[in-house]
Write a protein that binds this DNA or RNA. Structure first.
Lengths: 356, 356
DNA sequence: ATTGTAGACCAAAACGTTTTGGATGTCAAC
DNA sequence: GTTGACATCCAAAACGTTTTGGTCTACAAT
């Protein structure tokens, strides 16, 4: 570790003193009130004055002081986003894309974002309480909902605005955006069944996660629809990581007879499963079919490319953000929740027809 | 897409009207000034009064109004973070971890974060200008510095506080945190050379990126140190994605004689290279050595696990954030820049000794 | 002449904090 | 009994906006 011996940068801001409403008022010889109202296009200001004021404002390079506006309106123009995760080294391909979605929309709408990560549990809930009580944000975006979700309960109780990405089981109606994971997983199973697979294994995820629960329900339904028996030995639960998928897939490959297809609850585990199959000398897409869920960028470039279910995570971020701002500003106090129907992305990892 | 027929959630905030300094002042029969100063532990307030005020404050559940504080201090308590990226579907494993690093530190220090993404170029710079001029943030965190970096130039010119993750070539000294990529890549090449490799190929990245430039320089130096000839045909440039690494690796494998080792500029490309080698029937770690750089979470669970150079991205985020806040608050107006010495993580993808 | 109305404007309050520049009282030193 | 030092306190200004609750003028209707 090296340190500079001498440093020279200077952080004296070189910008001109910003103009205020008062400056404009002085310049045009009107009151601050009139100037403010002129700039907001109120109709108790004469057209001439408006023109005058606008002219002066642009000459002085007037930019409203956001802090004063916020104090006056008692709004922070900030949205809270707490990612539930254990430790810093989480590998959630969602995060970047989803946050980019809400971030860009938020910037567009003039909002900031308060980002934090907390492990699910008491510490997490306390973070919500702290932020709510200190009025740091105008609303929250909740991700990775759980079947019993104390965050949603808390926010509903306090009446604090939020939008969730995902549904939950233990709370009345609330605004959310979600993708129909049950339907998506049914698409997967149906596709595999049509290709001739009968022993379709499933790598699920901890079922307190709402989406994991839905996807598993989809698997079960899909199997039933296809008239296939459900075997406990073909159903496992992973931890959503690539390593977890690897391990669970090895386990599944050891059952006899082994499954001819593995449907994973997410892409990361599917990628691990592909590695597992390959390490057993199987050719994925020929000897075994493996599918994922999410359609993360890596899915397209894996080898073989992964058959999966698309989840438009960036757009979901956009929608959630827009919905939340609608609630906060009162434009859409009770927006309609959105449930997206996903589509199947067929790539090579599921192969073609199985030799019966 | 389904819509709810009826919605019931209510966003009337259920919280008690928050107490203000005035309320406390009334309760204890002192002035607002004294209350404020008591809570800030000024020494022109008697211990008795302080106790009284603190008691009352906690009884009333006083929480300072952050907006009023910000207006008064003329500070936003917000840090700007604009990720340079093309399109929403970027797959930057850094992003999540780095942002978690700055996010958690920022929350700890009472700061919010304004997040956005912009493609590098004019639009990006305009975003910086807009945000600076509207006083939306107190400082910026810059990532993925470029050899000629207009963001850094602009911020230095205007004297606006920032900290960069990465160095640049076209600006005087400024505060940064960086990892010595040159050194890291030298470690890689040295290690490969010691294992007996002589034809070590390199997959670089666009050289306008400062880190890419450094890593390539490290490769060249490492080769020279090892007394190995540098062959133009063994040096390529990828786009940092897995797919890019895949394609470039295929290309490299087609040279004759082919390289016995491929050092990629980042892990994602290395993972692609592993796929490429495998698609040619090579066993990575035996028939060919492949190394990455970054030590992203995926590197550990790939097959084979990836030899790479560790970059403590979360901690770098932490440091950058802390440094920036130091600059903003004036506690550390001229912090020492930090250059971290990386360490090599040897896993199976580089194999052991090469059969000469 | 009075009343009403509409158009144009604005002083002051409000948002809740921090800081400035004293004021007041007490006690010791001279 | 004056002076200075110290401890304690506070009114008012400041931050820059938006909103409230008007006023004033001109002109038309009565």
């Amino acid at each position: 570790m090296e340190t500079l011996s001498k440093t020279f940068w200077i952080f004296d801001v070189n910008q001109p003193m910003p103009a205020t409403l008062k400056d404009i008022a002085q310049k045009v010889g009107k009151s601050v009130t009139t100037v403010s109202r002129a700039l907001h296009d109120y109709d108790d200001v004469s057209p001439e004055t408006k023109a005058l004021v606008r002219q002066a404002a642009s000459e002085l390079g007037y930019i409203p002081n956001i802090l004063a506006q916020r104090l006056q309106k008692q709004r922070t123009d900030t949205l809270g986003f707490i990612l539930p995760t254990f430790g810093p080294r989480f590998s959630d391909p969602f995060f970047s894309e989803f946050l980019a979605g809400i971030g860009n929309k938020a910037t567009e709408l003039g909002y900031d974002i308060l980002v934090a990560t907390r492990p699910p549990g008491e510490e997490e809930l306390q973070a919500y309480r702290d932020i709510v009580q200190s009025y740091r944000v105008d609303g929250f975006i909740i991700v990775r909902t759980r079947r019993k979700d104390c965050r949603i309960q808390y926010l509903l109780e306090t009446g604090f605005p939020f939008v969730a990405f995902g549904r939950t089981e233990n709370a009345g109606p609330y605004p959310y955006v979600d993708e129909d994971g049950e339907y998506g997983m049914r698409l997967v199973v149906r596709h595999l069944a049509r290709l001739g697979h009968r022993r379709i294994a499933f790598i699920g995820a901890p079922e307190d996660l709402m989406f994991a629960h839905c996807r598993k329900a989809g698997y079960l339904q899909g199997m039933e629809e296809a008239g296939l028996p459900i075997e406990a030995s073909l159903i496992t639960t992973g931890d959503l990581t690539q390593r977890g998928g690897y391990e669970k897939a090895l386990q599944l490959l050891d059952t006899s007879p082994p499954p001819t297809a593995i449907a994973a609850s997410n892409d990361l585990m599917a990628l691990g499963a592909i590695n597992a199959a390959q390490s057993r000398g199987l050719e994925v897409g020929r000897d075994i079919a493996i599918t994922g869920f999410d359609n993360i960028p890596l899915a397209e470039t894996s080898h073989p490319p992964l058959t999966t279910v698309h989840q438009p995570i960036y757009q979901i971020g956009h929608m959630a953000c827009e919905m939340l701002v609608g609630i906060i500003t009162g434009a859409q106090p009770h927006p309609e929740s959105i449930l997206l129907k996903p589509s199947l992305i067929v790539r090579q990892s599921c192969g073609v027809r199985v030799a019966a």
